[in-house]
């Protein structure tokens, strides 16, 4: 089979598999809808035993990687590359977490699309035969994201109705050519798309056009339609963003039906006061590495189109009045055939 079709989609013929996965979340996520699916829940302490939230985020990545390697029945020495990214300036959570591992490290940044970005890149490197086994991880923390992008935690302000709640957590996957697990069959890399949304509190609207572009490119390149998937999963568009995506896709002649879901809308319960839903790198990472992986492993889901979106802004760009560019990457993961 060919390795690339169209401008954006690559195919993996050597069957890179997800042989291990792990998700760790904070107290609020632990009270949400997926309580019974996460690998680990920190019930009380969102500092994870550390002095600062930034250090807490690193600990989450370390624990997620450790858990993913264990779930793959592997050792640290079996992992040949560690690929990770997060939301903080200079991706410090990932790089500082990597400091404690004796594994070559590649830092990636795709904002909240990092989980899919690193899965897609890992699959390329594994499929190409350059590495046997790659670990990929990402994280976000409500309190570190608030501090960097918004206001101090204790400030008595009201959140705008279109805003979302950053998920505290981390997810990790082990992608390997050996072993058993769901297979990554192809990946579509997205283009940076900006439809001129300037409101940093409306990420869903800023990212939805990027999601639409990637989905259309994917369906065209792979000659598929939304009906060919058991589940089309977007990362953190939230309630408003996914409604916009459905509208935009319909305009282009694609109907997203009941098989379309958004991680940001799954993770929290309605009464948890999260407005449009969850966001952050960990939103897609923890939802995928809990309920979705479980269903892929049991065979309940056979073919999943997993697409995560990211808003590629910084505090400097938004303060200088720039609009919010979005990106979306997608991978197709096929479950274990039963």
């Amino acid at each position: 089979m060919e390795r690339k079709r169209g401008n954006q989609t690559v195919f993996f013929n050597n069957k890179p598999k997800i042989i291990g996965h792990y998700s760790i979340v904070g107290p609020k996520e632990g009270k949400g809808n997926l309580r019974n699916y996460f690998s680990e829940i920190e019930e009380k302490d969102d500092f994870f035993g550390q002095e600062t939230y930034e250090k807490a985020e690193r600990v989450m990545i370390e624990r997620a990687l450790d858990g993913a390697i264990k779930s793959a029945n592997a050792k640290y020495s079996d992992v040949h590359l560690f690929m990770a990214g997060d939301l903080l300036n200079q991706i410090i959570s990932s790089s500082y977490a990597a400091r404690s591992f004796d594994i070559p490290y590649v830092g990636v940044f795709g904002a909240c699309s990092t989980m899919v970005e690193s899965l897609a890149l890992s699959a390329c490197l594994v499929d190409g035969g350059h590495f046997d086994t790659i670990a990929c991880a990402t994280s976000s923390h409500f309190s570190t994201a608030e501090r960097q992008f918004r206001f101090p935690l204790e400030l008595g302000n009201q959140r705008p109705p279109t805003s979302q709640w950053t998920v505290t957590g981390s997810g990790a996957d082990i992608v390997s050519i050996k072993g058993n697990g769901p297979i990554i069959t192809c990946a579509t890399f997205g283009k940076v798309t900006d439809y001129g949304i300037g409101d940093v509190n409306n990420m869903g609207a800023a990212m939805a056009p990027a999601a639409m572009n990637t989905l259309i490119a994917h369906f065209k390149d792979t000659n598929t339609t939304p009906k060919d998937y058991d589940l089309i999963l977007s990362g953190d568009l939230g309630k408003l963003g996914s409604e916009i995506l459905i509208d935009l896709m319909e305009e282009q002649g694609y109907k997203l039906g009941l098989n379309y879901k958004d991680c940001g809308q799954i993770i929290y319960k309605r009464n948890q006061n999260v407005l449009m839903g969850g966001s952050g790198c960990a939103c897609s990472a923890t939802v995928f590495n809990s309920i979705i992986m479980k269903k892929l492993l049991t065979g309940e889901l056979k073919k999943v189109l997993f697409m995560a979106t990211g808003a590629l802004l910084s505090t400097t760009s938004s303060q200088q009045g720039d609009t919010v560019p979005g990106i979306a990457h997608a991978v197709v993961i096929e479950g274990v055939k039963k």
Binding site: R147, F151, P152, L153, E154, L155, G156, N157, Q158, R159
Partner: peptide, 28 residues
């Protein structure tokens, strides 16, 4: 912050809002 999220301008406009806006970054 919980009172503020509930009352909005009700806590921001009196001098309590000013006090909170200085203390909260100091803590952070």
């Amino acid at each position: 912050d919980k009172i503020g999220a509930f009352a909005g301008a009700g806590t921001i406009v009196p001098i309590t809002g000013f006090s909170n806006s200085i203390t909260s970054p100091a803590v952070e």
